[in-house]
Simulated scan of single mutants.
Amino acid sequence: MQFVTAHGANIPALGFGVFRMSDAEVERVVPAALDAGFRHFDTAQIYNNEAALGRALQAAGVKRDDLFLTTKVWVENYSDASFAASVRDSLDRLKVDQVDLLLLHWPGDSVPVADQVAMLNEVRAAGQTRLIGVSNYNSSQLKQAISRANAPIVTNQIELHPYLDQSAMIATARETGTAITAYYGMADGRVPQDALLQDIGARYGKTAAQVGLRWLIQQGFVALSKTANPGRVAENAAIFDFTLADQDMAAISALASPNGRIVSPEGLAPDWAA
């Protein structure tokens, strides 16, 4: 298994995300993901499928120490009255005493970053998570979170795919030693249909989707893959037996544009340029 290391923490480079999956889909696909070698699973309170993931992993009988579990606190729980209780509920649903990584899901526009991080510090001190991080923070928010955290912010989970220029955030992450975790790596279905990626893949005997994931991994990012189809899981995992040439990496990166963002919900998303 390949890892991304940040501040001494080892995060499996390829994760399996369950965003927009029903309970039935999660319980059907997780066994296939485990069979394909996935051990890093990513969910969130707002996905409403933590319990299904917990059931599926428990039923599979995989040792807890062999898993890397990530979940995210939803913005409506950013209060002293709700934050810790919501994390305890997440642990109960996942059937674990501690997650490996707990993230603040979005910065939102109502609770200051300093207050969000203070609550994150408390649940980590209580032993409810091993590692802490953020998601969808801009560069200035990431730096503020780092300054306020009592333990390293090991990752910022962000939208990242060939069509979005994230060079500014990547530079900030590298400057601060923070890992980047990439979500929406398939750009909501655009990557598998991309003619350039298909052509590149044909030269390696790989699909466009595998090329897209490899492009992320090869830059040193954690990549979250996702499929509700058990038959496609093994394809997503088979990205460690080839290396994209420098010219192919550059060609894929050249697809990026500043307006390539897909996910930017009002009231949750920050000023991305800050």
Rank of each mutant, 00 (worst) to 15 (best):
M1H: 12
F3H: 13
A6K: 09
I11M: 15
F19V: 06
A24G: 12
R28P: 08
D35P: 07
G37D: 11
F41S: 09
T43L: 07
A44P: 06
A56F: 13
A59C: 07
G61P: 10
V62N: 12
V62Y: 13
V62K: 13
R64H: 04
D65F: 02
D65C: 07
K72W: 00
V75E: 03
V75W: 01
S79E: 08
S82L: 14
A85T: 04
A85V: 02
V87W: 01
D89C: 05
D89E: 15
R93L: 12
V99E: 10
L104V: 15
H105R: 12
S110A: 13
V113L: 07
A114Y: 01
Q116I: 07
V117T: 02
A118Q: 15
M119Q: 14
L120D: 09
N121Q: 09
V123R: 09
R124D: 06
R124W: 12
T129L: 03
V134D: 05
N136C: 13
L142E: 08
A145P: 07
S147C: 10
R148G: 11
P152T: 02
I153D: 11
I158T: 06
I158K: 00
L160F: 04
H161S: 03
P162G: 06
Q166L: 09
S167N: 04
I170S: 05
R174N: 14
E175A: 07
T181P: 09
A182Y: 00
D188L: 14
G189C: 06
V191S: 10
P192Y: 09
P192A: 09
Q193H: 13
Q193V: 07
Q198C: 11
D199E: 15
D199R: 14
I200S: 01
G205Q: 08
A208H: 01
Q210K: 06
Q210L: 09
V211A: 00
L213S: 02
I217W: 04
F221W: 06
L224Y: 01
L224D: 03
L224P: 13
R232A: 07
V233S: 03
A234G: 05
E235K: 03
F242H: 14
F242S: 11
D246I: 02
D246E: 10
A251M: 04
S253R: 13
L255P: 06
A256E: 03
P258K: 01
P258F: 01
P258A: 03
G260N: 05
R261W: 03
